[in-house]
Amino acid sequence: MHGILVDVTRCTGCERCVEACIKVNKLDYDQAGIDRVRAPDGLSANRLATIVKLEDGHFARKSCMHCLEPSCVSACLVGGITKTGQGPVVYDPDKCIGCRYCMLACPFHIPRYEWDSTHPYMVKCMMCFDRIKDGLLPACVEACPNQAMSFGSRDKLLKEAHARIAKYPRRYKRHVWGEEEFGGTSVMYISDVDLEELGWPHSAAPAIPELTEPLISKTPFIGLTVAAGILGINWIIGRRMKLAAEKEILGEDSKSEKLKGQQDGQQTKDS
């Protein structure tokens, strides 16, 4: 399981990573430049990674966090998004129907849509899955001039993060963003400022599939219970009506014996 560790204190906001990302993913460079100022956080269908400006002159790279239990993977109704064993969360455009539920489900607002296309797809960072398979670094990690990002096995990166925090306790906040939030992510951050701007929650948040999974796994049983309940109710009522009808016939007979000559339909109905 691979991941990326972002050290916010080392990022100068030069956007070389963004440039490399655009180049590697063969995106429209000029449109990306325009989108940068139009999109609220700079992410768009032509910018899969962006630099977000934080408080007092800090910068941080923002793109897909590649959650360990991704909300988008559980949300996609055709199973078009998968969490690979190597770490990246990968999207298969051939399955996509364009429902955009992944965009709603993502807690970090990462997936973007090719709105201007007549044949649109969802777009997001895939941690350069093809490059990783070939043994290369993700483009952004390779491009960073200040080594603000490191790529490697997630466990090692976690150790490295804690080691850095322990080494410079006054420089970093004592928190690794992405260690536990939303069930853990493959892209993690250490920083000296708060990272709420990037979409990290204020306090520990559960993995989003944990909210839906207990409910959806019970769906077939709920359905069967409802069907059985309906049939049961129907049977009981049918039986009671049948009994009532029989009683009615009987009662009618006995009453007609008692009150000969008197014909009152209302009374018999009431009984």
């Binding site: 993977v73 559980s74 949300a75 996609c76 109704l77 055709v78 199973g79 078009g80 399955k95 129907i97 429902c99 539920y101 599939p209 839906t212 999974e213 409910l215 959806i216």
Partner: peptide
């Protein structure tokens, strides 16, 4: 597509 491609974890 959802008829053929299944993801039974999805509410959608």
């Amino acid at each position: 597509h959802p008829i053929v491609m299944w993801n039974e974890h999805s509410f959608l």
